[in-house]
Simulated assay, not measured.
Amino acid sequence: MALHGKFYWNELMTDDVEKAKAFYGATLGWSFSEMPSEGGPSYYVAHLGDEPVAGLMDKTDILPPEVPPHWFPYINVDDLEARLKLLEANGGHVIRPPFEVPGIGRIAIVVDATGAAMGWMTAAEM
């Protein structure tokens, strides 16, 4: 079971997935497996040996062009709905309400009280 409050996953959102894969493969030794998605760009899982360590995706059709490539973190929480109420009561807000990713968990995209965006999630049981 994933720990509450711990960074759980990171995704690189970029305009050039192939360049990013080449860079992280050469510099960190990551290999990549493709996870095709229905009606959208492919998602790539980065592996260090057999361990999945991050995700990469093309942001071209997801974010406005003025948003630069960036890493996007996800933090695991014990009770997503309860934590979202606390988030809003403490100056944050929800950008995208909770949604289910089969086999991964429930995720909401949020902004903290300083304006920093991230995902909060309750990971699926492994």
Rank of each mutant, 00 (worst) to 15 (best):
A20T: 12
A20F: 06
A20R: 09
K21C: 11
F23N: 06
Y24F: 14
Y24M: 05
G25Y: 08
A26E: 14
A26N: 14
A26M: 12
A26F: 07
T27N: 12
T27I: 11
T27P: 03
T27F: 07
T27K: 07
L28D: 03
L28C: 13
L28W: 03
G29F: 02
G29D: 04
W30Q: 02
W30S: 04
W30I: 04
S31M: 08
F32Q: 09
F32I: 04
F32Y: 14
S33K: 15
E34N: 04
M35K: 15
M35E: 14
M35R: 14
P36Q: 06
P36V: 06
P36G: 07
P36M: 05
S37W: 00
E38D: 15
E38S: 13
E38A: 13
E38H: 10
G40K: 11
G40P: 10
G40L: 04
P41V: 01
S42C: 08
S42K: 13
Y43L: 01
Y43G: 00
Y43R: 01
Y44C: 12
V45K: 02
V45E: 10
V45I: 15
V45L: 14
A46T: 00
H47K: 14
H47G: 03
H47C: 03
L48V: 01
L48F: 12
L48D: 04
L48H: 10
G49W: 02
G49I: 00
G49F: 05
D50E: 13
D50W: 09
D50P: 12
D50G: 12
E51R: 11
P52N: 09
P52C: 08
P52E: 10
G55C: 00
L56S: 00
L56F: 07
M57V: 10
M57P: 00
M57C: 14
M57I: 11
D58H: 02
D58C: 01
D58R: 02
K59D: 01
K59T: 02
K59Q: 07
T60I: 00
T60S: 14
T60G: 13
D61Y: 08
D61R: 12
I62L: 15
P64I: 08
P64E: 10
P64T: 08
P65H: 05
P65F: 03
P65K: 09
E66F: 09
E66M: 10
V67F: 05
V67D: 00
P68I: 02
P68T: 00
P68H: 02
P69L: 04
H70E: 09
H70W: 03
W71C: 07
W71H: 07
W71P: 03
W71F: 11
F72R: 09
F72S: 06
F72K: 04
F72I: 04
P73F: 07
P73D: 09
P73Q: 10
P73S: 12
Y74L: 10
Y74C: 10
I75A: 14
I75E: 01
I75G: 01
I75K: 04
N76S: 11
N76A: 12
